[in-house]
Simulated assay, not measured.
Amino acid sequence: MKVGSRSSERWFNRALWLVALAFAWFLTALGALVVGDLPQVEQHYTLEQFLDRDRAGPTAEALRQIRRDRQENQRRVEQAELELEAARSASAAARETFSNWLKTRDATQRVDQDPGLVSRTERLDALKEAERSIETRLEGLARESLDLSERGAAQERVETEIRVVAAERLRAAETGQELRVFGYRLALTLPLLALAGWLLLKRRHTRNWPFIWGFGFFAAFAFFVELVPYLPSYGGYVQYGVGIIVTLIAGRAAINGFQAYLARQKEAEARPNEERRTEIATDQALAHLAKKVCPGCERSLNLADPNTNYCPHCGIGVFERCVRCEQRKSTFDRFCHACGEPGAVARPA
């Protein structure tokens, strides 16, 4: 906050900063929608798009036929098991009847001449033969089921191989798509950041500064926050690599800025006292003095000592006597606080 500014001016500045923040918020919300909708310019890939049609079609049809054959085989097995169970029940009932009949009849010495015994025995043999026939049919169905399982497993291996190849193609296509979408986002946000930087450097002191600062906040947020989640990963190599590059660039810029600042300070401290004071803004100088810091070299000053009129570090004059009333005042005051006499910064050259 400027020390020499009016109270109404400070409140107007606060209101204008609210305007800047509101403008940045609306721009950021709109930018988030645009950045989020950029993937819609690309088509949505599916695994079926990358399958080998010459192999996938026949393999899928063969698997469907094998599944139908297995279902039919299972149905026939269940039917045969029911028939076997019925045949075994009939055979068990006939054996029990035959056993009871043997106990109650009068046995003869010549069994082959006994028509009842022979017919019952033949009937039991027929029932047993029916059981064996159904069991043989079940064995054939079991072999057929095993063959179908082996054929199905072979076809599933082929289908898995086809899908693995298609999945690799899908991943490659999605990677390329991610890079293209990231390029779209970068092409949208990077010019905005460059434009915001130019505006802040060249136009931030104009009357439309709230909109320029709001646009700068929006561009910085869009580039450094909105763009980061869409940065390609590749196991972290890209993200960490970009982080290293950004850190090197920012660090180098900070080092160069600091060295340039030190060079400017040394150059300024070598110039005459009056010339240096005219180059320092009044509000800036008063703000530094309020913090007990030299306006010229930004080192600490002992303002409690009434004899401290010059900075002991750079030699710039910070206090002087009024030419009219001899009161001690800051050399950066526009008017004397005791008599109103114009100071050096307010007197015409």
Rank of each mutant, 00 (worst) to 15 (best):
H205Y: 04
T206R: 11
T206N: 07
R207N: 05
N208C: 02
W209Y: 12
F211R: 05
F211M: 13
I212M: 03
I212T: 14
I212Y: 13
W213T: 08
W213G: 00
G214K: 06
G214D: 07
F215K: 00
F215Q: 01
G216R: 05
F217N: 03
F217Y: 15
F217L: 14
F217C: 02
F217V: 09
F218C: 07
F218M: 09
A219S: 13
A220Y: 13
F221Q: 07
F221T: 14
A222F: 13
E226W: 06
E226H: 15
E226T: 07
E226D: 11
E226R: 02
L227V: 03
L227R: 02
L227I: 04
V228R: 14
P229A: 06
P229T: 08
P229G: 06
P229I: 08
Y230R: 12
L231H: 09
P232H: 10
P232K: 09
S233Q: 14
S233E: 15
Y234V: 06
G235V: 08
G236Q: 12
Y237H: 08
Y237G: 01
Y237I: 14
Y237A: 15
V238D: 05
V238C: 04
V238P: 03
V238Y: 14
Q239V: 15
Y240C: 00
V242E: 09
V242G: 03
V242L: 14
G243C: 01
V246P: 00
T247D: 01
L248T: 13
L248G: 10
L248S: 10
A250K: 00
A250G: 12
A250W: 09
A250P: 00
R252A: 14
A253W: 07
N256M: 04
G257F: 11
G257A: 12
G257D: 04
F258D: 02
Q259S: 05
A260C: 00
Y261K: 06
L262G: 01
L262Y: 00
R264N: 06
Q265A: 08
Q265H: 02
Q265G: 04
